[in-house]
Write a protein that binds this DNA or RNA. Structure first.
Lengths: 155, 155
DNA sequence: ATATGTGCAAATGGTTTGCATCCTC
DNA sequence: GAGGATGCAAACCATTTGCACATAT
């Protein structure tokens, strides 16, 4: 299994014309096993949890950028103070509902959204085929209630 | 006109239970006249272009946060290194198509998207009514072409 | 009168970068 | 062997914060 992921990592790197260094294989193998989105620090922690020589912060950041540019990772704009990423799998088109107040994130699959975005992409000159994702920022009901409560108390 | 916007600013502040200081009125009046989205530095520059005692960076940042929490401004996650905002008008539901490579942003209005997001919001416990927005990150055609060109050259 | 807002300058924190060294191709 | 990759520590830069002073209600 770890074997498989290392192989996958090597394939991905070669496909992206990136040199297969031990650090890159190690990071990519680890990330390909992560579910959902993650930040740079989480990734670093996960990678260096393994009994291997640790990967430095600088290398990790550089690699995250490279992988995103190659379409292997997708950068998700979920919060404004730290970048989050997703491993790009074959068919995992989904969008995120994000609460603007508490940061809660819900992953959602919707063919309606996908189709419409495809339309809009064509119309405005975008290719949502690669690294496409959709983020919706709103308030979750819990935070809305809280907000309503505060407003009421203020009276 | 500037008069009108100052009045609007005062109304908004009072409605949000925020004290009407000269700085706040000045900032909000200025922002309410801006079209499209803007970053903190742009806002600061615009505000302090007026022949008035300048508003400090700290105050501006504090105010942007307050205004967003009150739903007067909307924070738009268009790039990961700096926050951007929009003045929230009455009926301006729109989404943004963002190119992951060059940062190009296209504002798009789509009732299909709005309806679907309303559905999804209900289903997953979000209120897209307040401060809702949608962001789609993709690659614009120009950047796709460039990418294809680079890959070809690499061979 | 009192709670709040403002400005300054220093602190923060995620991310990037310069440079000497190491490793892949 | 040569050009790209790594690690360290310092640099960056948008944003936040502590504190003394000013202001709105």
């Amino acid at each position: 299994m770890a074997r498989d992921r290392s192989e996958l990592a090597r394939d991905l790197l070669r496909g992206a014309r990136l040199r297969c260094t031990s650090q890159r294989v190690q990071v990519l193998a680890c990330l390909s096993g992560m579910t959902g989105h993650f930040g740079a620090e989480e990734a670093l922690a996960a990678v260096n949890m393994l009994p291997r020589p640790p990967v430095s912060r600088a290398t990790l950041y550089r690699l995250l950028n490279d992988l995103e540019q190659q379409g292997i990772l997708r950068r998700v704009l979920l919060s404004e103070n730290c970048s989050r990423y997703e491993f790009v799998g074959p068919q995992d088109r989904h969008c995120h509902l994000v609460c603007a107040s508490c940061g809660r994130v819900e992953e959602v699959r919707s063919t309606v959204l996908d189709q419409e975005l495809r339309h809009l992409g064509e119309k405005y000159g975008f290719s949502p085929d690669r690294a496409s994702l959709e983020v919706t920022v709103a308030s979750c009901n819990e935070c809305e209630r809280q907000r309503a409560r505060e407003l009421t108390n203020g009276d």
